[in-house]
Amino acid sequence: MNIVLPEESQQDASSAEETSLLVIILDSNPGQKMLRESPHVLTHCVDSVIVFANTHLMQKVQNKLAIMACHSKSSQFIYPDQGKHGDIRQVDGQYEAFTAVEKITKKNLAKVLTSDGSAVITESLLAGAIAMALCYIARLQRTKPPGAKLNCRILVVTGSSCSTSQYMNYMNVFFTAQKQNVVIDVCALDQHLNLLQQGCDITNGLYLKVPQLQGLLQYMMWVFLPEPPIREKLVLPPPLKVDYRAACFCHRQLIDIGYVCSVCLSIFCKFSPICTTCHTVFKMPALPAVKPKKRKKM
């Protein structure tokens, strides 16, 4: 007698029907080095990001998109926004939905750019922007209809540097993303970003430092357009080795050997009698080479 193979036909069609959400975080902070030197680069980046976003929407009907601007003083969603856009009509042969993405994004981005004060803040607060994106993703996951599958990823496009002052925020968002199965991709435009690269490694995302800004769109199409399930079928740049060394809390230096406070786990590069983070007083200097084995009395 024949044997019924349960649910064999269900497997193959599944991946094509899942909705995938792409949240793009565009760093528009005028304080970043790249933009301070040549502000017009932003236009090129915005154009590339919008075309890339539309290409993502073009892949599948179900695909969803959100774009955020990470600005010097705040981050906000620039697409989709709350307004109604029934009045956006085609102006040429471009698909109406793509026209809408372009217009809304540019309009809201212009608002963000003009709202800014004069203070120059060199470091973009990308960790906060990622945190907002994660909240947004969490809401969509909560409210999706039963049985639907939503794959989410975040693409960070930035020319900023990353300093260790946001270290804890970065780590919290990376671990949250890992828990929620959100992939974080990073497209570095200007400088190498060690911390964000760790995030890519933790969440199985891709990290790319764009060699030439001119070809930004092409790089994005090649590397970031394929969704994670398709990525394994393509040959993509191999992951770089990630430097997971700690930076000490006192001098922000990368260290090989350090001292860790047993109460708050702060890392110091030299022994100090008091913890600057939790103000604990250390009674006895730990012997440098040997881990203290004997118990000390209060």
Binding site: N54, R89, G93, Q94
Partner: peptide
């Protein structure tokens, strides 16, 4: 040529989208 038009713009508008 035409997929580029759909993605990037250019060309004629579609027949039904007059103002």
């Amino acid at each position: 040529k035409n997929i580029k038009i759909a993605l990037l713009g250019g060309g004629k508008t579609w027949s039904m989208s007059s103002a």
